[in-house]
Design a protein around this nucleic acid. Structure first.
Lengths: 209, 209, 209, 209
DNA sequence: AATGAATGAGGGTTCATTCAT
DNA sequence: TATGAATGAACCCTCATTCAT
């Protein structure tokens, strides 16, 4: 399916975004960049406004408070970034390849929607803010379920039957590896997908057997 | 070597801490607790001072600015907490047991020196603050080296020869698992060491083969 | 003269209000309710606009600034509300009954045109804003004159001749009682017209003798 | 008793105010002046701070929020200004003289502690802010009780027995007159104590008979 | 005539930092 | 050495006002 076709299909399905929705998106885009650059607390509303190219007051027409922006960013990030990267594991089989894809995007650091620092910040914030925690855990739970099914399926393809419980633990370890990679990206500049791949393949094979 | 002997030896080697050193430690202890509770930015100097049982002004006799406290906390945390947990892997062989030990301490949340949120906060901060990044990477590098050797030794015990490169990649994956667990502790309340153990054992065995 | 006749007469005399006048009235009605609920400063233009069922921008076609609305409200309130209550004293004779009527309407708090808080707010504002002060004093002066005449007439009915000066002082005291009641309504929830009536009658009788 | 003696006695009884108490008083003095000049809402913290000769931040060492200052001012004003003016009525007998004394101080407008605008503002605010209302009503209740007793005593001196209920209604009317005078001070520049006195005397005599 | 999005100054408040004591 | 009062810049947020549509 060509890009054009997809876009048309999408436009046919999704109504054109209202001005308000576009403004919200504009603000969230700016906020995301600011949060990545400075973190949730150090990024000021003035900074976000400047990045979005609007006045500080205008933001409050679309978000009641800075908190709400943080919440929306967390939600959107979990919806579109790290979690889908995990959830897509369920559709395909190549767990390893997907992980290393994420790794590459993290390393390039040019893609604000796929940012290791944001995952860490967001998780750290969840450890303190109950509202954020709830969002994070809800999404995490959903991902876990999908991933569990994916693990079951992948194991079955290799002739192994896994109970839901067994598969669920394996999913947990996969998530550990995934999030651990986000930490590694920040901490270790020598990280290389090509070097990592064979070993990761082996580990994942062990997981599924 | 008994604990007592070690302490004596240590005291014999290390000179008694000066008053200034003791004050610095007192401040850092307080700061650590505050940072865990609220994060680097939300923890105020006044709060740290109150926790340390001293006046805000006095802190500035020992640290030039809040930044320096953050830096010192990061340094100390890497020195005494998460990294040693990794480095101790090098002395023993039971990688899995050590990891789950850390997991348990993270889950209890009563141990300020072993706190998942702080690891995440600190790593997120490193992604933004070059000075922190430098500290984190330097320490990480040291840990990697030690862990690489430990992996080589552990493999050898199982009759497997690993090149330094091969061992180093395995060390990387171990670190991923370790840091990934820190994320999991925050994100998933169902995490259980006993359920995790057999699988983790298997994965690590695969790593070392 | 029946109410109907009066209205007709009035309509016959007054030209039909222009659209602009109707819009101004709509805005003032809304502003009055907002000012009563929140006070001059806490009531926002957005709130007034919403109450009036129009956009904030439109208000500025009819009033140059919020200040002008306040001024207009003060003017209108003095024109139609508390002052007439005093002025009507001049037409009738039952000073006491009229006062207690006002009291009852104040206590019910459902009548925006007769609101104790607004009288207080307005008088307090007059103490600060020279423009408001001028309006208030001008109207007060007019009321005083009318009331003085009414007092003279009422005294005469009881066979007492009062000079203009003497009557004017009595009018002042009547105004004191009236405005004092407005304070009492707010400050004392036990206030009751029936309990007050006999005493008020006595006081007023003393005034007129 | 000379002023000196009184001061000594006072110093013997009251401990010297702490620095904190002095600062609070300094802030309240400044706030009072600002509130009189601009009203509770229009007076900004920056303005209060400037008037008090200190930085805005410092105020928050002594008051948690602007609200608390407003509350404290209301409390203090009721404690030391208008209410005592009423309560002192209970000790003496010259109701009329005391009222006109208050009137004179209001008219001079040089005494910030005896300001008609503040009474109005405060009562208007009570109509909206439940916290203020509670303070005002509590104090009003106390004054009413004292005044009721004073009225009973004053009547008795003139050979009239008044039940508590009867006296209480008379107290109410006295309060009306008193607060009504505060309104008059603002609204009518011609107000004169000497002109008012004979009539006020007469009214009060009627009240007590 | 009417909208409501947009502005930006200014509000209350916090907090890292300094300094007189 | 130690205090904690004091500062003032910067924070988040509100709102009177303007203006493109």
């Amino acid at each position: 399916m060509s890009v054009e076709t997809r876009r048309m299909t999408r436009e046919a399905r999704l109504p054109a975004p209202t001005r308000a929705e576009r403004q919200r998106a504009r603000i969230l885009d700016a906020a995301e960049r600011c949060f990545i650059e400075r973190g949730f607390h150090a990024a000021s509303m003035a900074h976000i406004a400047a990045t979005a190219g609007m006045s500080p007051g205008l933001i409050y027409r679309y978000f009641g408070a800075k908190n709400e922006i943080v919440r929306a960013i967390v939600e959107r990030h979990l919806e579109t970034d790290s979690c889908p990267a995990m959830q897509r594991l369920s559709t395909g089989e190549d767990f390893c390849g997907r992980m290393l894809q994420a790794l590459e995007r993290w390393r390039r650091r040019d893609d604000p929607s796929m940012n290791a620092a944001l995952i860490l910040e967001l998780t750290a914030e969840a450890a303190r803010d109950p509202e954020i925690l709830q969002i994070v855990r809800a999404k995490d739970h959903a991902v876990s379920k999908d991933l569990t099914v994916a693990v079951q399926r992948a194991a079955e393809e290799q002739g192994v039957r896994l109970s839901r419980e067994a598969a669920s633990v394996r999913a947990m370890v996969l998530q550990c590896l995934f999030e651990g990679l986000a930490c590694r990206v920040v901490r270790n500049p020598n990280l290389s997908a090509t070097v990592l791949r064979p070993l990761l393949d082996k580990v994942i094979a062990a997981l599924l057997s």
